[in-house]
């Protein structure tokens, strides 16, 4: 009787879970199925699409690495130091997740457009944030940075403080403790955070379109083609972009999992 109850229970969960999976997979699958191979090959050879995909990939990677330089130390400070308003700081770093991304774009424009301090500084150095790859990097970083920060915070929290203390009593300076103990031990989480941040930046549309309609990142191009020419014209670019993103994402995850299992075996 009990066995029967458990089986019914499992079946209900399996059904509900299956519906959610179907919900995620079916639109993607339908798009793949309804896009012809000829259209896809044509799109692959479209130089405008090629440039856009390349732009999207390199700007999202640049956003991840440039902002990781400050994010990792910030995560470390949040974990290791006790300071006033620490809870407020933790809340602030999650703001980009909860605000609409178009609103994030507008807000960013307020500090990087040409008549702002940052905008003038950039002008002095010979570039502009608006309608440029620099602007795309800023927009991508703004919306994706919480993923890295939160993951790095989890990573550093998992490093027992006594290991750092032990390293100090073994003659290590604060800098050496960070680079030889804290960072390597938190690395798995940080790597996951980097992948998540990059993936989120890659797919960003709302903030990017406000700051830089041109040069056109692929999400903006998909929107533009859909808006101007309709669904069938937007689909091949979407499918191609999805294939490339998924391939990179799977590859990165494979590296991360491999690193994790190596660490476990060690």
């Amino acid at each position: 009787m009990l066995q029967q109850k458990i089986n019914v229970f499992n079946l209900v969960f399996l059904f509900l879970g299956g519906l959610v999976l179907l919900f995620i997979i079916s639109p993607l699958l339908s798009m793949f199925v309804s896009t012809s191979g000829t259209d896809l090959i044509e799109t692959v050879h479209d130089s405008e699409v090629q440039e856009s995909i390349w732009l999207t990939i390199w700007t999202s990677i640049a956003a991840t690495f440039i902002f990781a330089i400050g994010s990792i130390p910030l995560a470390y400070l949040i974990v290791r130091k006790n300071f006033r308003l620490k809870k407020l700081v933790r809340a602030i770093i999650n703001i980009p997740v909860v605000i609409p991304h178009s609103a994030a774009g507008i807000a960013l424009l307020g500090i990087i457009s040409r008549n702002t301090v940052a905008g003038k500084l950039a002008s002095g150095l010979g570039f502009s944030f608006v309608n440029s790859s620099a602007g795309i990097i800023v927009a991508m970083a703004f919306v994706s940075i919480p993923y890295l920060l939160n993951s790095a915070i989890d990573g550093f929290t998992g490093v027992p403080e006594r290991l750092e203390k032990a390293a100090m009593t073994l003659g290590a300076s604060g800098r050496r403790v960070f680079f030889t103990i804290s960072l390597p031990l938190a690395w798995r989480h940080i790597l996951t955070g980097l992948i998540m941040m990059w993936a989120r930046g890659l797919s960003e549309f709302g903030a990017v379109i406000i700051i830089a309609y041109h040069p056109m990142t692929t999400p903006v191009m998909i929107f533009e083609r859909f808006n101007s020419y309709g669904l069938s014209y937007a689909k091949p670019v979407t499918v191609l972009f999805l294939i490339i993103c998924l391939a990179i994402f799977v590859f990165m995850n494979y590296i991360s999992v491999k690193k994790r299992s190596n660490a476990k075996n060690n």
């Binding site: 006594r162 032990a166 073994l170 031990l185």
Partner: peptide, 28 residues
């Protein structure tokens, strides 16, 4: 701390799990 000439062994293990035994001893 590093100039005190004091060694401290904690109750809980403090070996660095990403390093081998050799590397742990070589650390200081």
């Amino acid at each position: 701390i590093r100039n005190r000439s004091i060694g401290l062994v904690y109750q809980n293990p403090t070996l660095f799990s990403h390093l081998t035994v050799y590397e742990n001893i070589a650390y200081p």
